[in-house]
Design a protein around this nucleic acid. Structure first.
Lengths: 117, 117
DNA sequence: TCTGATGTGTAGTGTATAGTACATACTACA
DNA sequence: TGTAGTATGTACTATACACTACACATCAGA
């Protein structure tokens, strides 16, 4: 599962084509970690960082924080909080949609959004 | 946040009324931890145990594992897995239902169950 | 050519997590 | 009154998490 690091590295180098400031050192500085740490993460020699750093990385690389967190094997703290507030209902809902195809799930999200349910 | 320990203690002592085997020692043995550890947890001197032990405790005390995990500030691993598989859709869904009243949420769960969506 | 930026290696740190092991003190009851 | 069972206190431990600090080799550009 070094998916995370690989992805970060590819994305950073992609951005670097048009902007030289996307070096390990400078991205690390902007995200707030040591360059060697980011380097190790990108090469999978170190586990993904904390949620806060992953969010900073997502912002820096213009990526979806939730997707990045997922690659890191994590779930956003605010989502966990929503589940913990109503554990029974939320657990039911999540287990229920588990096997639902994307299209149907999208439909359900839309319905929830419209407060029709 | 010593909600968890308090709850466990009350529930255990409740069961103890009709069954003497619900002592700290014996429950700890059945759940697979040291009695002193369970004692500390119940009095909030120690943080809640791992998900596995919480599940064993839920089974032992005949309670909802998801509710107990929530009290412990945790979210079941299988639910996290569901979210990580489709981070974008699942995050949307969860944030969408966040402010939905229980009744509507129950309705949404029912709909999901019937695969009508 | 040399200088500044770059990536990476090695070592170490503080804190949290998830407990065990054993000693001690109380308490019910035979 | 002794003893079996019960709860709790104290001390430890091992592993993971989330990093920092700094040295070093390389490499591109002025």
């Amino acid at each position: 599962m070094f998916e995370f690091g690989n992805h970060i590295r590819r994305r950073r180098e992609e951005l670097r084509q048009s902007d030289r400031t996307y070096s390990v050192r400078q991205v690390a500085a902007r995200v707030g970690v040591e360059p060697s740490y980011l380097s190790k993460i990108e090469r999978g020699r170190e586990a993904p960082p904390s949620e806060a750093k992953i969010r900073a990385l997502a912002h820096e690389l213009d990526e979806d924080p939730d997707a990045l967190l997922a690659m890191a094997g994590k779930v956003a703290g605010d989502l966990q909080e929503v589940i913990r507030r109503r554990p029974h209902l939320m657990s039911q809902l999540i287990r229920e949609v588990q096997s639902m195809p994307d299209a149907n799930l999208r439909h359900l999200v839309a319905r929830a959004r419209q407060r029709k349910n």
